[in-house]
Simulated scan of single mutants.
Amino acid sequence: MEKQRKVSNPLALAVLAFLSTAPMHPYELGKRLRETDKDRSIRYNHGSLYMVIKQLAKVGFVAEQDTVRDGGRPERTVYAITDEGRDEMRNWLRELVAEPRREYPHFGVALSLISVLPPDEAAGLLDRRLRALASEIEEIRSAVEAAAGAGVSWVFLADDEYHLAILEAEHQFVSRLVDSLRQPDHVREWREFFEGRTWPARPSPKAGLSFHRCTHG
């Protein structure tokens, strides 16, 4: 069972993980996150990073350690992970690694409702998605190969390898789906729906979106 955490933003877990290696000020944390491409897995910006650090400090997972000044820049507060924060980080990470979690990707939402689009349009849109996926797959594969060639240990590339595997699986799925949409017999009932007819049988709630009749402009 998923535990209710005091700070549940995934960015908080990344902050705790980086602070477990050494105390840092928020600017340095942001730099490290960018250098390690954590934005591929975690959505964040400058403001959200500072907000999460304040939340972690409030619940006692990190604490102010020092204040430093670099040249003419404003003073920066250095934060360190606490013993409670280290325990939270490890327990949270153990949960995420060991227990599958139900997630709700936007593409899954789109597929659950795709029947409201004409099949030809749906196929064209999925073709565009295939091109975008192929480009992203090539970008990540090249980055992983370059990093491995530069001596980066595989353990620091595991998240990219996972992302690559997910994208490749999605590309294969979408390719098969597009092929199916271009088979007239496969989309006959779907096409008839857009010609003003009803579905031949009303699907059950678990089978997808159901309609009585629909008027198209």
Score class of each variant (00 low, 15 high):
L126Q: 06
L126H: 04
D37Y: 11
L126Y: 05
E64M: 04
P105T: 05
T67V: 10
F156E: 12
V62I: 13
E189M: 06
F211G: 07
V97E: 02
Q172W: 12
E2T: 08
E64I: 04
V68H: 00
A150Y: 10
C214Q: 06
L157H: 07
M51V: 06
K38R: 12
R128G: 14
R176Q: 15
A158H: 10
Q4N: 13
L56S: 03
Q172D: 14
D70G: 15
L164F: 01
N91K: 08
V78C: 00
P74K: 05
Q55M: 09
M89K: 09
L209H: 03
E2H: 11
D39L: 10
L113C: 09
I42W: 04
A134Y: 08
R40E: 03
H212P: 10
T36R: 03
L157Q: 15
R73F: 14
P203K: 15
R69V: 02
G124Y: 06
A146Y: 15
G208P: 02
S41Y: 11
E168D: 15
I140T: 06
I42A: 02
V78H: 01
R34F: 15
E28R: 01
A132W: 09
I42E: 02
A14P: 00
E170F: 07
E99C: 13
G208R: 11
F107Y: 14
P100M: 11
R34C: 11
